[in-house]
Design a protein around this nucleic acid. Sequence first.
DNA 1: CTGTTAGCGCATTCAC
DNA 2: GTGAATGCGCTAACAG
Lengths: 354, 354
Amino acid sequence: MSPRAQAARASVPAPTPQPAVRRPTVQDVAREAGVSPSTVSRALHTRGYASPAVRARVRAAAERIGYVADHNARNLRSRTSTSIGVLISDLRNPFYADLAAGIEEELRAAEYQMVLVNDNADPAEEMQAAETLLAMRVPGVIVTPVTAKCPQVLQDNGVHVVCADRELGRSNGDVVLSDNKAGARELTEHLLNLGHTRIGLLIDETKWSTGAGRLAGFRAAHLDNFVDLDEDLVAYTSFDAGAARQTTRKLLNDHEVTAIISANNVLAQGALTELKERRLKIPRQISLAAYDDVPWMSLVQPALTTVDQSTVEMGRSCARLVLARIRGELPPRRRIVRVPARLIVRGSTGPAPR
Amino acid sequence: MSPRAQAARASVPAPTPQPAVRRPTVQDVAREAGVSPSTVSRALHTRGYASPAVRARVRAAAERIGYVADHNARNLRSRTSTSIGVLISDLRNPFYADLAAGIEEELRAAEYQMVLVNDNADPAEEMQAAETLLAMRVPGVIVTPVTAKCPQVLQDNGVHVVCADRELGRSNGDVVLSDNKAGARELTEHLLNLGHTRIGLLIDETKWSTGAGRLAGFRAAHLDNFVDLDEDLVAYTSFDAGAARQTTRKLLNDHEVTAIISANNVLAQGALTELKERRLKIPRQISLAAYDDVPWMSLVQPALTTVDQSTVEMGRSCARLVLARIRGELPPRRRIVRVPARLIVRGSTGPAPR
DNA sequence: CTGTTAGCGCATTCAC
DNA sequence: GTGAATGCGCTAACAG
């Protein structure tokens, strides 16, 4: 803003800070119900510490005057919060949106709130978000980690952390993963069974458990089926539809593949675009399949064969897991939840040509 | 949970409530820096009440011992919060995901947090969410309202409310809308210019400003172009791809349309499914277009002609608006922000047959 | 089972 | 410009 504009703004009517509507407190409820504030507190939450009669009276009084307990005060005093931090890379990617939706659903059912932060897969933003969540004193965080440091710092500060979708190196915290290896293996096997022997794998990373697992499944399927895997068919690209398209082009030009598997929904987009551009008949001339089923994959013609990683359910699992931790219901040992992956055969995969 | 299970759970090792890692407080920073707690508070926030030297010393001390201010305490004391409530219908719908992404982006930049709640377009859940946000003492809420009661209750409690995407009857609060009428008019005109005179409009509601605006634009285009609108071509359906498909079927069977416009991305899915099922050549035999551009629409073949309502930008606008209100930068008069809609012509629309 | 007392961590009066 | 005192609204210890 220019100095001029700023000055103009400073002379505006008068920055009313807050309407400061006075909201009723426990005191008010206490007076209304003819009991003490602490009794109000007990009647409203803890079970067994107030007689049914009093409890009913207090509840009625609270209802009458529209009392809503102040979370800040409660959290401050009781050193707990019902807000859970959720740290993801990109809400606009349906994978993360579904994950968040599953988390939110489960949290809401348990009367917890979701504080959602997009970190754009940027380590700096991720750390900053972690600090904010620390400041909020959230008891738990669900994160699709970018750096191991983030979950680490949170844990060091007593926050229960659940890593979602991926594991970074040797972590020691709870984690919820898609069964990447099994899913990728099944998908690859499906293509091998159709007679494909030159299957290109479009993949962006293998440092994380996600890519590593999918690659492992891809390899395993080849091994199991006695098909030699030409290492050139593992085509590394970056997490970007445009790049994936370029890589697909190379795969097509230089390696005579009859099928392509993309390791996630973003890469699939690039691959499909290139195939369409070339007017290749799917699946007659080439088969295409993707890990990570998202809605558009069943809308295109032909619909894509995919692996559905039950993303929403994965989110629910994450939420259940942090909540269980927070409630102290789990033994200290780290928990690894593996969410099943399901092959969905649609029209984009068919017999190998020739 | 069954009584049995509950009993079992109660006898588990021992519900450790919290690891209760003791986090540094202002006191600790004060000791470390050799000043008083109140000086620490001032040095860390308000400007002008601490000498630069002290301020630097305090900041260094805070950094050193890893001090992170407690939001709960701060909020309690200062009666403000940096959490903003965001109430939407369905995070899995890319429209809402984009909206939330835009909101979050802007909030994060201003160091605010987003508490996201899915209300599933259910009035009861919406009201419950409102109460929760009230309990959190959020200074502002952005909501895609289901009932007028929700924004009302929030406002009555001194919360700044911005309604996003739609207006319910005569509201008196701030609102950010897509320019529905202009967008729909432009889209309709595009089809009329291609020679279509029997255009079906697939629409789910017209009570809200959203549907009403799109219908109005549809009508206006007909009027402007001197094309009589057969009222039967306004095909009411419900907000559901399956229903939209049925309605599309009827439109096709009974009304000889040469083009279909769907009022949003969900309905478009149903319409497209039906057209593909019938193996109709798009756009040779029939044209299809949609309001609310979402990613899959450019992936299908042919890509869909749509109206892009700049959803992410709409989210940003919402966030900027609540923040401005919270800071008291705006005059009391209600603000109506209209986000421009942009026609994107792609392959699914072509000259009318015959 | 209930009332009294105390204090969570911080920001904001006031004096100085 | 800085320190001491006060209390935001609530719940956890205690008595009783």
